[in-house]
């Protein structure tokens, strides 16, 4: 029993952690390139989840079923999240490329408030029931008390997404351009890389990952509202910092560690203080090792 409890916490921690990791990747990639905490990133995740809910709602009513809903809703949600992420960058961040550091951050906070309230006003302040998009896997039934099918799907989907991202960054042309821009934006521009485009693509990729996270979480938890992006965003940012911001494997590691730690703490200590615990981790990491688990310490050039 004791052991199974632990396994349960462990699996749910991993699940949670891989969602954090998906969102954290968006933070870390954007931060790596333009040193901005994209405060509105959590909102993109929320928008992804919402679009999936709306589309699948419509499709259900018009008689679609099962896998076709999952595919269509997922696809449209991803497209929309990407479009929002792209637009967000164009409007709120690009004009502030050379402004003092705090300006884009405040702009980001403004965007986050705006998007939250936009969804609140255009849709509803209430929680909406999220459709069961992920089918039950019959094979898993006997082990349901340890790992649910939603959990398994989340773990597999996130792993695949992260592998795809890694391959993209390593081998695709745009991935190389991203790495070059991350190292030195001015040099990248000099050798003919269209930096604005690279930044746009970075936002789009980050948004796609966040949308995938949003859809998965929606089906896992079963309900969403306009506010889910806020906490998820803060947690994912914590994960990114934990792993070393700007560092892609770090974001994944940070997400998993945070998810596990939270889940175990909630299970064995107290669930009321679960969020406090996450912030505690953030503060401790920033004080003790601001460069994160995998990041390198750099001294600012003077």
């Amino acid at each position: 029993m004791e052991y199974e409890n632990f396994l349960g916490y462990f699996v749910s921690g991993l699940t949670r952690g891989s969602i954090y990791a998906l969102i954290a990747l968006g933070y870390t990639m954007v931060y790596g390139i333009i040193q901005l905490i994209n405060f509105a990133h959590g909102e993109i995740y929320m928008i992804g989840a919402f679009v999936a809910l709306i589309v699948s709602g419509v499709l259900t009513i018009y008689g679609f079923s099962g896998v076709s809903i999952l595919v269509l809703a997922g696809l449209i949600a991803i497209i929309y999240a990407a479009a929002y992420g792209y637009t967000l960058e164009r409007i709120a961040y690009r004009p502030l490329r050379s402004a003092p550091r705090l300006s884009p951050l405040i702009s980001a906070i403004g965007m986050s408030l705006f998007l939250q309230n936009y969804v609140l006003l255009a849709q509803t302040p209430d929680f909406l029931r999220f459709p069961q998009l992920i089918p039950e896997i019959a094979l898993l039934q006997p082990y349901a008390h340890v790992v649910g099918s939603a959990e398994l799907v989340i773990l597999i989907t996130s792993a695949l997404s992260m592998i795809a991202l890694t391959l993209l960054i390593k081998y695709a042309k745009i991935g190389k351009a991203m790495r070059a821009t991350q190292q030195d934006m001015i040099m990248a521009r000099l050798v003919g890389i269209d930096v604005d485009r690279v930044i746009s693509v970075t936002f789009i990729i980050g948004s796609i990952l966040a949308a995938i996270g949003g859809i998965l979480v929606g089906s896992y938890i079963g309900q969403i509202n306009f506010y889910i992006g806020f906490m998820a965003g803060v947690k994912a940012f914590t994960a990114a910092v934990l792993g070393g911001i700007g560092n892609i494997p770090g974001a994944v590691l940070g997400g998993l560690v945070l998810g596990l730690a939270e889940s175990l703490a909630a299970g064995y200590i107290s669930s009321a203080y679960e969020d406090v615990f996450a912030f505690g981790v953030l503060v401790l990491i920033l004080i003790l090792r601001p460069s994160g688990l995998l990041g390198k310490a750099i001294k600012p050039k003077v």
Binding site: Q35, I37, L105, V234, V241, V276, L282, V283, L286, P290
Partner: peptide
């Protein structure tokens, strides 16, 4: 604890403090 933090980290940590206070 947050004396040495860069501006943007500071923002997030203080956000955390605000939420913790409420919790």
């Amino acid at each position: 604890p947050i004396l040495r933090l860069r501006g943007d980290y500071l923002a997030i940590v203080t956000l955390g403090f605000g939420l913790i206070a409420k919790i």
